[in-house]
């Protein structure tokens, strides 16, 4: 087959074919699922928090959140009315051939169907300045990666903006070192305080470039909250920062207490000799994500 540049384009017959309508269907279901049910690791850590919280008011709030999740699942009422802007991580195996339409359009169709059929709030405006609601919660923010293999892994993570608004990027200097990084993270968390609906999950990206660290911080929020980093110094940092955040006194709902964060998840990446970028993406206790592999 001619490739349009005067050469021949080869057709590989052993590619795995996936209809984009499959992507639409799965994303629709995952949008509804993520907004009504938290992952098992989140449930577990929130239940433990309700037992461990020292403040009576804090415990009462954590018990209300347990009751809230129960009602959400039983009556199919979203856990939070802010059903978010939909962030999607899509990892496509390089041996996959998508057919039947435009992949990105299929993703957005899944979001549209999920938000309509699932009685989810439409929270997206078409233009950041003119601010007219798109009426169907599209478009999603889609991050695609090509990876080896013939599978497609999709993570749907609806992100609420109470906590998103409190997130930060710091372009530190190499001389600021690990202490500078820790201070930046603690500053972001303390500034967020009651606004970010604590107990929160703190996603951190260290290294890379301006946008890479922000993307890592977002991705870090999708890691199970009971799984620590495999890099020893990063794991230590995660544990130390969690203890420091919980000593701040912010507590559940920001109304005082010993459980302010449920986890600090850090991702790192190589960076430039001149830089030390740090991004802190804060998520409320409704840290929603649903993952499927096709």
């Amino acid at each position: 087959m001619p490739d349009g540049n005067g050469g021949e384009r080869k057709i590989f017959r052993n590619m795995r074919t996936i209809e984009v309508s499959e992507i639409t269907k799965n994303i629709k279901e995952m949008c509804i699922e993520a907004n009504h049910f938290l992952s098992e690791d989140m449930e577990k850590v929130l239940d433990r928090a309700a037992e461990q919280e020292e403040s009576p008011l804090g415990r009462q709030i954590l018990e209300q959140l347990q009751e809230n999740r129960k009602i959400a699942g039983e009556d199919m009422i979203p856990i939070c009315q802010d059903t978010g802007m939909v962030v999607i991580f899509l990892e496509a195996g390089q041996e996959v051939h998508f057919v039947g339409g435009d992949l990105e359009a299929a993703v957005n169709e899944g979001v549209l169907q999920g938000y309509q059929e699932g009685f989810l709030r439409k929270s997206v405006v078409k233009d950041p300045i003119q601010r007219e609601n798109t009426g169907d919660n599209t478009p999603a923010v889609l991050h695609c990666r090509i990876v080896p293999g013939d599978k497609v892994k999709i993570t749907v993570a609806p992100k609420g903006f109470g906590s998103e608004n409190m997130s930060r990027v710091f372009m530190l200097k190499p001389a600021d070192g690990i202490e500078g990084v820790k201070n930046a993270i603690l500053t972001a968390v303390k500034d967020a305080g009651p606004n970010a609906c604590p107990p929160m999950v703190v996603g951190v990206g260290i290294g890379g470039t301006f946008e890479k660290c922000a993307l890592m911080a977002k991705h870090a929020l999708t890691r199970p909250v009971d799984r620590r980093s495999e890099t020893p110094y990063v794991r230590e940092m995660e544990e130390e920062l969690l203890a420091k955040i919980n000593a701040s006194g912010i507590g559940p709902g920001g109304l005082g207490g010993s459980v302010t964060a449920l986890a600090v998840n850090i991702e790192t990446y190589p960076t430039h000799i001149a830089g030390l970028p740090v991004a802190v993406n804060i998520c409320c206790h409704v840290n929603r994500h649903s993952t499927r592999e096709l």
Binding site: N68, I71, I77, P78, I79, C80, C197, G253, G254
Partner: peptide
């Protein structure tokens, strides 16, 4: 939910009003 500015707190005092918090993220309940 969340903190108010000093200007709002002053207006609450000036007018004998009140700012309540409801539990954020408990929308179903």
């Amino acid at each position: 939910k969340g903190k108010r500015s000093q200007a709002v707190k002053d207006a609450v005092v000036r007018n004998g009003a009140v700012y309540f918090a409801a539990v954020g993220g408990a929308g179903a309940l």
